[in-house]
C-alpha cells in the first residue's frame, strides 16, 4: 500500500475534496436520519431491556467501497460482510481514549456473552490515519485486544468515501507536536449492520458504550432485531 505523504500535513481533512460535500450531506442527513433517538427510557420490563445507542428505522446502507485488510488484500465491504452482524467504526491506532475504550468494551462484552447469538459479530475497525495505520500496525494493535477483530485501511480516497457514505463528519488530521505525535478527529460511532437486511438500524456513540450495553444488544442484533 502506498502512503500519501500529504496525510501528515497540518489540520487538513482527509480526502478534502469529497469531505467538503460530505459535510453538506452529513448536515442534511442529521435532520432526516430516521425519527431519531427513540431511546427506550423504560426500565427493564421482563425480557425487554432498554437498547443502547440510537435507532434508525429506515436503516443506513453499508459503505460501498473496497478497503484493504490486514494482509494487504482487497476487502470489498458489502460482499465480505453480507448476512453477518457487522460492527463498523472508524478510528486510529494512536487514539488514546475512545478507540481503545470502544474495542476493549466490545471485547469484554464478547467474553461475557460466551457463545450463542451475538457472540461472534464481525468487528471492523477502519484505521483512518493511513500514514501510521498500516495493515501490519492494525494487526498488532487489534491483536493485543482481540485477534478476531478485523482491521481495515485503504487509500485516503477510499477511507474518506466510506466515511462520507455513513454520514460521519469529515476526518481531520491535527498538526503534529514537537515529537511528531498528532491526533485525528474522527466520528466515534459504531454502526451495527443487521444480518437480516444488511442495513445499520442502530448506531452507538463510541465513548458511551459500556460492555453491558453490548451484552444486552448483541444477541438481539444478531437476530436482526433493533427495537
Amino acid at each position: 500500500m502506498t502512503t500519501d505523504p500529504d496525510a501528515l500535513t497540518r489540520r487538513r481533512f482527509l480526502g478534502a475534496s469529497v469531505a467538503a460535500s460530505g459535510l453538506a450531506i452529513a448536515g442534511l442527513a442529521g435532520c432526516s436520519f430516521g425519527p431519531s433517538s427513540t431511546k427506550d427510557p423504560s426500565i427493564e420490563t421482563g425480557e425487554q431491556k432498554p437498547w443502547g445507542g440510537e435507532v434508525d428505522e429506515q436503516g443506513l446502507a453499508k459503505p460501498d467501497v473496497t478497503f484493504t485488510d490486514m494482509n494487504g488484500e482487497p476487502f470489498p465491504f458489502v460482499e465480505k460482510t453480507k448476512g453477518k452482524l457487522a460492527l463498523l467504526f472508524f478510528g486510529y491506532t494512536n487514539c488514546p481514549d475512545v478507540c481503545p475504550v470502544t474495542l476493549s468494551s466490545l471485547n469484554r462484552a464478547l467474553d461475557q456473552i460466551g457463545n450463542g447469538p451475538g457472540s461472534d459479530p464481525m468487528v471492523l475497525f477502519v484505521g483512518v490515519d493511513i500514514a501510521r495505520d498500516t495493515p501490519e500496525q492494525l494487526q498488532t494493535y487489534l491483536g493485543r485486544i482481540n485477534p478476531t477483530f478485523l482491521g481495515l485501511t485503504g487509500t485516503e480516497k477510499v477511507i474518506a468515501e466510506a466515511n462520507r457514505q455513513v454520514f460521519n463528519g469529515p476526518i481531520a488530521i491535527e498538526e503534529p507536536d514537537e515529537n511528531g505525535e498528532y491526533a485525528v478527529i474522527h466520528s466515534s460511532k459504531v454502526f451495527a449492520y443487521s444480518p437480516t437486511d444488511d442495513l445499520a438500524h442502530r448506531y452507538y456513540p463510541g465513548s458511551d458504550v459500556r460492555p453491558q450495553t453490548w451484552v444486552q444488544d448483541l444477541p438481539r442484533l444478531a437476530k436482526g432485531r433493533y427495537t
Binding site: D97, G169, N179, I185, P205
Partner: peptide, 16 residues
C-alpha cells in the same frame, strides 16, 4: 515523552 491532560468531547458532527 509527553504527558497531557485532555478531555474528549463529541462535537456537533458526532466526532471525538
Amino acid at each position: 515523552e509527553t504527558v497531557t491532560v485532555h478531555r474528549t468531547d463529541t462535537d456537533a458532527q458526532g466526532r471525538s
